[in-house]
Design a protein around this nucleic acid. Structure first.
Lengths: 348, 348
DNA sequence: GGCGCGCGCTAAAGCGCTTTAGTGGCGCAT
DNA sequence: ATGCGCCACTAAAGCGCTTTAGCGCGCGCC
């Protein structure tokens, strides 16, 4: 009405202001729920916004020192392995799903190593490109939490050791999960248990190993852990290594679904039946695991849901809401399928 | 030297200008390779940039009507299925890998349907949030290419029918691939071939069906296609449907790796051996397919590489370089594994 | 009745960059 | 010597939003 809108151009705050007969400042205040605007005026402004179909220009917002409405995820693993691990894809999907309901975008970046990852954080912080980040694969003495605090970039860790740190963490109790898994195997009569683990430096891998050995000691089991880099090649090699000794394990636990599948292939090649000769359990459930023959016993957790929870936490942190130091994710639950059975030779 | 840099703040163009003893305009020109700056001055400016560690503020750049250094990918499929299809994860990894070398970010969004997808494009175009987008799963009479052209948002299609359209496409010749696959089966003596297809509305699904029937006619095979929504449930149901008739196929082709795995599970449950009773081939290769028992014969294409190629194409389009209407991706190649064999009853 | 105060709003500056419109100086042609 | 044009560079405006400072007005208070 008042202002002739330039055709083909997105309306700006100035257009809204003209349309509602107020100043741009008033519009900005109304949009950001700041005090100093009467309800009547606010309603008028919001009506104009709706009528003209105004949308914030993120760039302008970010430039003004405000939010970028973007959350970042930097992954320091070989790019090609990302597509293989269902965990990542599911996590990203969950993150995305929750973020998009708030019109917050997810920025994805894959880098070589942790040093490069820190560079990216620095750049993003400086460029105001992201409001916050999600950090994965925490390591022992990881420099990232402190660095992020130092550069003032809000962050949320996935995993960790369950203790409060400089940055809030979403934590699932791997320890309890592993204990449940080992108890399941012990109940089936297994005494010699192999474990194909993850990257030794990762906190969650280390926790699993610790839990495994704790439970083994308590239950009188003999366990052997072989660390891997999560790749199929190393998982296959680790499985062969476990099979080599005279006293080969009657059950093998794998830290990831992909590793478990690679392992079962090795077992099949070695002429060992699952679970007839060797029981197999995966610490990560996924479609892969369910499609295997036989379908694998696994710790089931809803990674998609975990992603949503992480996203929710990041959003809270970014918005300055109070967030507990440690947010509890559901503890994975044991799903028994056909790949675990009584120890060979035992009475059925 | 000249300018006292405010501590704790990222240097801006003004800082560079002061440091190099020129105007901010000169710095901007030098950084953007515009003419009108002597080599001497340009070198001095670039030295100052390096010395002060300057980095562009993307928000400011985008606000000035320039690039946002971001490419978008909107996927209109149920969020949870994303994590299941290795195709997506691999494609995203490849996209990401290529984009990040140019410091361009990838924005990911999962939406309900194509209408929501178009809304997102409109918003992004208006907000200058992304410089361009990647469009997947082209449908017959898809409204998206024209809409994108209309809103002036650069885009690249993945797939399509290989014919020039309003938007450049990266195209892999599914037709040739399917033909090769059918010829392989025919050579093994198969005459009755089942096909568990994809979503009928998708161009690439339709092309595969067409190719399958063309080849079948030429080679004198009897084929039955059952479309699915790419989910495991429908793939399993489709497999059962194919097995029901008296004249059950001696070979089944699956449009995706996940579908193929779900199908082999059904075959196993039905007591049918692979490839003893039924040969199985997947139209998508992946780690899943290789880990199956037996590993599946599949059309192998490097999806990661495809992602890189798509990213490269988007970057070219965004930068206004000339891009062919149709960029050829490598044609998938047949990888014969243990899941396809001679038709039962034939002399070996 | 004058003063101070707070409410509701506006003016204007500023975020960091790009871009348009110059401006000054130098070389060259006349 | 004068004028023209071009090259190298600068001044300043503008992108859309937020934010700080400030203004006018009505109210309550003594």
């Amino acid at each position: 009405m008042t202002a002739a809108r330039r055709p083909g151009r997105r309306p700006t705050i100035a257009d809204i202001a003209a349309h509602a007969g107020v100043s741009p400042t008033a519009v900005s205040f109304a949009l950001n729920d700041r005090p100093g605007i009467s309800d009547r005026t606010r309603d008028r402004i919001l009506a104009a916004v709706a009528e003209l179909g105004w949308r914030p220009n993120v760039a302008a917002r970010a430039l003004g020192g405000r939010r970028a409405d973007t959350v970042g995820l930097v992954v320091a693993r070989p790019a090609r392995t990302l597509g293989v691990e269902p965990f990542f894809a599911q996590l990203v999907s969950g993150l995305q799903a929750r973020l998009s309901t708030d019109l917050v975008a997810l920025q994805l970046l894959v880098v070589e190593d942790t040093a490069a990852e820190l560079d990216v954080y620095r750049r993003w912080a400086a460029e105001r490109r992201t409001d916050g980040v999600v950090v994965l694969d925490l390591e022992q003495d990881d420099p990232r939490p402190d660095a992020l605090v130092a550069m003032g970039l809000p962050a949320v860790l996935v995993g960790g050791d369950g203790r409060p740190g400089p940055v809030p963490a979403v934590f699932a109790d791997d320890h309890a999960a592993m204990t449940a898994l080992v108890e399941h195997l012990a109940a089936l009569g297994h005494v010699r248990v192999g474990h194909v683990g993850g990257i030794a430096g990762y906190v969650h891998s280390a926790r699993r190993v610790a839990a495994l050995h704790d439970a083994a000691e308590r239950l009188g089991l003999a366990v052997t852990t072989v660390p891997t880099d999560f790749s199929q090649d190393e998982a296959a090699a680790a499985t062969r290594a476990l099979l080599a000794p005279d006293e080969r394990p009657t059950a093998i636990v794998y830290d990831s679904d992909v590793a478990a599948l690679a392992g079962t292939t090795v077992l099949a090649e070695a002429g060992l039946g699952v679970p007839g000769d060797v029981s197999v359990a995966s610490f990560d459930d996924s479609q892969l695991v369910r499609l295997a023959h036989p379908p694998l016993t696994a710790m089931t957790r809803d990674t998609f849901e975990l992603g949503e929870l992480v996203a929710q936490t990041v959003l809270s942190v970014v918005r300055g809401h109070a967030v507990p130091d440690v947010v509890a994710a559901p503890t994975p639950a044991l799903t028994v399928r056909g790949s675990t059975g009584a120890v060979p030779g035992a009475a059925s």
